[in-house]
Amino acid sequence: MSSDSSWWNLLPWAAVLLASLWTAHWGAEQFARPLRKLRRQWGISVAAGGALVGLAAASPEIGINASSAWRGSADVGFGVTLGSNILAIPLMVATAYLASRTKRLPGDSEHREHLQQRLLRVERSAVTVQALPYLAIIGLFALLTVPAPWRGLQPLDALILLGAYAVYLAQALFRKKVRGERVEWQGKEIAFAIGGVAAVAGGTYFAVMATERIVETLGISRIIGGLFITSPVAMMPEMVATWALVRSGQTTSGVTSVVGDHAVVLTLGLVPLALVSLPIEDMGLFVTSLVFMFAMGASYGGFIHFGASTHGFLRWQVLTLLGLGLCYVAAAIAWAQ
């Protein structure tokens, strides 16, 4: 088969991948709306709410893992998991920073000062509620997968991961509660939420199928395809959502949702892969990914807490996160060759 023919075979599946992941994101947004209402009704702070709303935000990754496990392509889901937990943080923070570079954000009376400081303001509680528990989850993930006696993911790990998610969600929901709001529930939004779940399931199934066809055409491994093809495409709708949140004045929500998303992906999201048992064949790539995953999470929390007199990200810190992401891409490509 000629190279031109291969590229023509690739284009339809690339279109399927794009359409499928945008469909899944649409479904996740419908599912997220009632969760945001619950956050306000239960009096959960914005930072802590990321742990709850992250269940919807992470649903495309959960769906990809479930679909890849079902189709016998667990490496696709595993690659997406690694990619989303390393590359999404710098991309979302950079998107939020650019979205905040306007003269005024709704509800932020000090925004002009933040512009002068070149600062993306984030609530301090994002560190203790989101970043520190996320680092603990990364440690648990490494403990379950790296040591030789139980290397990889097994069905028993599914129970441990479910318990870890329950603890993570509980510590967020019961920390720093505020006064709840009265909200009205409509049958239409519940119907849309149910439809959203169906859209996530269908969209992610076809996304995995498209990834399988793309990696076959390109002659690359499925884990690399999930890491460098499916994962970046899946981030595109999330970047649009982050931009919209920050432009509406919800900077903390826009910045912290990515970590809440990742915490769900590394616990609840890995359950389907654990149930079918996932061996780790390329330990070099995997350990490299773990190192960068921890470094990215630690940098995220450290920059918010220590980087400025008021908590948030300065411009040089945003650029540092992007540089760290580029270093990972280079290292992963080197290991893959």
Rank of each mutant, 00 (worst) to 15 (best):
S299Q: 09
V76C: 00
A158D: 05
L275P: 03
I214D: 11
A14T: 08
A201P: 06
W70S: 08
K103P: 03
M1E: 11
Q130D: 11
G107E: 09
L120Q: 04
M235F: 09
R182I: 15
P149W: 04
I190E: 01
R222L: 15
A158P: 01
V197G: 07
L285V: 02
V291K: 03
G72S: 14
V271S: 06
G43F: 04
S100R: 10
L11R: 10
M283P: 00
A96Q: 14
A170Y: 14
M293Q: 12
A74M: 09
Y205W: 12
G27A: 09
G219M: 13
W185C: 00
A336G: 13
R213H: 09
R213G: 05
G260E: 06
T204E: 11
S125F: 14
Y97E: 13
G260M: 12
R179Y: 08
P232A: 04
G195R: 05
L55P: 04
L35G: 13
V167Y: 15
F303M: 08
E281G: 02
D282A: 11
F313I: 07
W243I: 07
E29H: 12
Q154R: 04
G72Q: 05
K37E: 14
W70Q: 07
A99S: 10
L319W: 14
F303T: 01
N65L: 06
G163I: 08
S221D: 15
G180H: 06
P34R: 07
E216L: 10
A48S: 15
G63W: 03
I280L: 09
E281S: 10
D282L: 09
Q171C: 14
E61Q: 12
A201K: 00
E181R: 14
A234M: 13
L115K: 10
L218Q: 04
G77S: 13
T81A: 14
K188G: 01
R182P: 06
G284C: 07
A330H: 13
S5I: 08
V271E: 05
R36P: 00
F303V: 01
P279N: 03
Y134S: 11
G219D: 07
G301T: 02
A298E: 09
G284D: 13
A158Q: 01
A198N: 11
E238W: 10
I62D: 01
L218S: 14
T242V: 05
F141A: 04
W22M: 12
N9C: 12
G163T: 08
F294E: 01
A88I: 07
F292N: 03
R104F: 05
L115V: 04
Y165H: 13
V53M: 00
G63M: 01
L17T: 05
V178E: 15
R39C: 15
M1W: 08
G63R: 01
S257A: 15
D108G: 02
A210E: 07
A191S: 03
L270V: 03
L21H: 01
M92Q: 15
M92S: 10
A334H: 14
